[in-house]
């Protein structure tokens, strides 16, 4: 069956691009989730939807418009989160609803609400183009080298920004870098996973890994591996059951999360039992 799947060029592209994007999303997600920035992923996907709809309506290259727009949005959202005067969760909710609305209005004024819009919302397996795959190879190269060569800095910035600042780590630089990379990841993954579902790639693997692993290193590695495995399983299931790719991947992620939660509960009970015996 796998062989049959691989005979379709669009499926090969989807698998390759999807694996790389979900790997990036999972790695960046560990830092975002731990810094309580989970909502940023959700906000950015809605902004990305707005930008994409406008690009299609105007007839531009979708990525050429949405990558810069979403990057700017990522900057803005980070600034909002750092600035405690504005309640950042409300601001993110506002921005994401507005850009979703803008996208829908623009689309219905031009092409009308077609299947295209629905496929942006909930994703389409056909969406990965050759160009997207190339971009995701580039992106995952950058993200992987960031996590290998600047791993310690990322740990410091994620664990304790103030301390990192005081020891001279360029905290602003790393925050911005993570935000920009997240933006590109979301734009790339969105059309396949869907605007409503892409943020799950950022959040689920990190949360799942945290159930069991107790070191940052363990969480990062486990989250990356889980994300790739869940994505592949999701795509295979989607092929067999003819369900939408994005939703299938999210369901697999949810299943693994529940499994890990159960395992950690059982583990704790056993651990406590041992303590009692001693």
């Amino acid at each position: 069956m796998i062989q049959e799947m691989l005979s379709y060029p669009f499926l090969v592209r989807a698998l390759l691009g999807g694996v790389l994007v979900s790997l990036c999303a999972a790695l960046l997600g560990v830092s975002l989730v731990l810094k309580r920035y989970s909502m940023i992923g959700d906000g950015l996907s809605h902004v990305s939807f707005g930008a994409l709809s406008i690009a299609v309506a105007v007839g531009w290259q979708p990525l050429a418009l949405s990558i810069p727009v979403v990057t700017v949005a990522a900057f803005l959202l980070l600034r909002l989160t750092e600035n405690s005067r504005i309640k950042s969760d409300a601001a993110i909710a506002m921005i994401s609803a507005s850009s979703l609305a803008a996208g829908i209005v623009v689309t219905s004024l031009t092409t009308g609400m077609t299947t295209d819009v629905s496929s942006y919302m909930f994703g389409s397996i056909l969406a990965m183009s050759r160009q997207d795959v190339l971009l995701s190879i580039l992106l995952s190269g950058v993200v992987l080298s960031l996590f290998v060569f600047c791993y310690n800095k990322i740990f410091a910035v994620t664990f304790d920004e103030n301390f990192a600042k005081a020891t001279g780590v360029r905290v602003g630089f790393y925050n911005t870098l993570i935000a920009v990379l997240t933006a590109v990841t979301i734009v790339l993954g969105m059309r396949m996973m869907g605007a409503m579902l892409i943020s799950s790639l950022v959040i689920f693997p990190a949360l799942t890994a945290m159930r069991i692993f107790k070191s940052f290193c363990g969480v990062v590695i486990c989250s990356g591996i889980l994300s790739v495995l869940c994505f592949c399983t999701g795509i295979v299931l989607s092929y067999q059951l003819s369900t939408p790719a994005g939703a299938s991947v999210v369901m697999v992620n949810l299943g693994v999360y529940l499994l890990f939660t159960l395992a950690s509960r059982l583990g704790v009970r056993q651990y406590k039992g041992k303590d009692m015996e001693v």
């Binding site: 310690n152 664990f159 304790d160 301390f163 020891t167 107790k214 070191s215 940052f216």
Partner: peptide, 12 residues
């Protein structure tokens, strides 16, 4: 935060 004591101290 999921981090070992060693990881935290090393980051100093």
């Amino acid at each position: 935060f999921p981090a070992t004591v060693r990881e935290v101290v090393l980051s100093g």
